[in-house]
Amino acid sequence: MLRSVVRLTPTFIIPIFKNRNENDYVSNSTQPVVSKTGWERVKKMYSRDEFEVISVELNSVVQASLAGAFIGACMGGFVSSRQAYLYFIENNQATIFKSTMEAKKKLQDKVTIGFAHGAVRWGWRLSLFTGMFSLIATTISVYRDDTSLTQFITAGALTGGIYKLHLGTAATFVGAGLGAALSAVFGGAILGVLYLSGFSMQDIRQSLYRIKLAREDQYNQVLENAATIKNDELTKHHDKLVQEKGQITVENIE
């Protein structure tokens, strides 16, 4: 158990105010090949490798979208369930119920439905906003082969403008300006943390990608150990004989 936790724990938490250890990254499969031009790097970002696996950059975008969906679902669900609870209490003061259990059941139904509505309403919106912002910022970073405040401001302006596009021209410009301002603040904070820790955004993407690979490896190991066909007594005896006597090809059989 402890070994699994250690394998899934990010390695970029420890070094502060100094450069990371050169031995922190030993996986050759996750190291990107630096292309010559910006468009080649962007094309590589949106391409799959020989194993049909998405790139490290797109993996970080997907994780950001899922994190946004989870946070949005929790926030929207808690707020909506609280509103449903208060609305039920305020509007059923004079309602006659057959029993206390019936009243609690109807209250629980209203709270559950309110939580589901709030989770869906806020989950997909925050997921879309976070995914769009992360995709634009990551694309600009890959094209420029650098991480700067410009990519955050541009991504925030485009995301805010597109998000409010259906409300008209005025709302679009307001959304773009607000998105650019907030992105400048949070982008500056992110760059400050990266500077103090001695890391880059690519290092963090590599760490997140390795966590994904470790999680998939743990999952495959659990499936392998749980497979009764591959781990029955006959198969184990056969594997033991193969290890003792070695494998024999068809051509060597007399």
Rank of each mutant, 00 (worst) to 15 (best):
G198E: 15
G168I: 07
A67D: 06
M101P: 06
L167I: 11
V42S: 02
D239R: 11
G198V: 11
Q31C: 11
L8Q: 01
V185K: 09
A103F: 14
T169Y: 14
Q63V: 14
V61Y: 04
R20H: 15
K110A: 15
H237W: 04
R144D: 11
S200P: 06
G76F: 09
R125C: 01
Q247M: 13
L178G: 08
S80W: 01
R125Y: 10
Q202F: 00
A155F: 00
T159S: 10
I190S: 15
S80T: 04
E102D: 10
R3C: 07
N231V: 15
T150G: 13
T159F: 12
A155G: 13
L167Q: 13
L234V: 11
L8M: 03
Q31W: 05
E102C: 03
D145L: 03
N59C: 10
K105F: 10
F152L: 12
I14D: 13
F133P: 08
G161F: 01
G77Y: 04
I162Y: 12
M132P: 00
I16T: 10
L149W: 07
L208P: 01
D145G: 06
L234P: 09
I153A: 12
P10F: 03
Y25F: 10
Y195E: 11
H238K: 02
Y87Q: 00
T138D: 03
A176N: 00
T147S: 12
D145V: 03
D109K: 02
N23K: 14
L191Q: 12
Y85V: 02
P32K: 05
D24G: 07
E57Y: 08
L158I: 11
A226V: 13
P15E: 08
G72P: 03
E57N: 06
R121S: 09
Q243I: 12
D217Q: 06
A181V: 05
S80L: 00
S47Q: 14
L213S: 11
L58W: 03
S29K: 14
L107V: 00
G192S: 12
I16M: 09
Q31M: 08
S148G: 01
A69W: 07
V193D: 10
L208D: 10
T172H: 13
Y85A: 09
S148V: 06
G198I: 05
G192F: 03
R210K: 01
V6S: 04
N59S: 09
S27I: 03
W39C: 06
T9W: 09
Y85F: 08
I14E: 07
T228V: 15
I248C: 15
V142Q: 10
R125S: 14
L149E: 11
L126I: 15
A226G: 11
G160A: 14
V42D: 00
F129A: 15
F88I: 00
G72A: 12
K110G: 06
V33M: 07
F173Q: 08
E22I: 10
T159R: 02
H238E: 07
V193Y: 09
S55H: 01
R144G: 03
G192H: 14
S60E: 03
V174E: 04
R48E: 13
T172F: 14
R144F: 08
W124D: 08
I248S: 08
A180T: 09
L107E: 10
A116C: 04
I253M: 08
Y25W: 15
E22M: 07
V111G: 04
F199Y: 09
F152C: 02
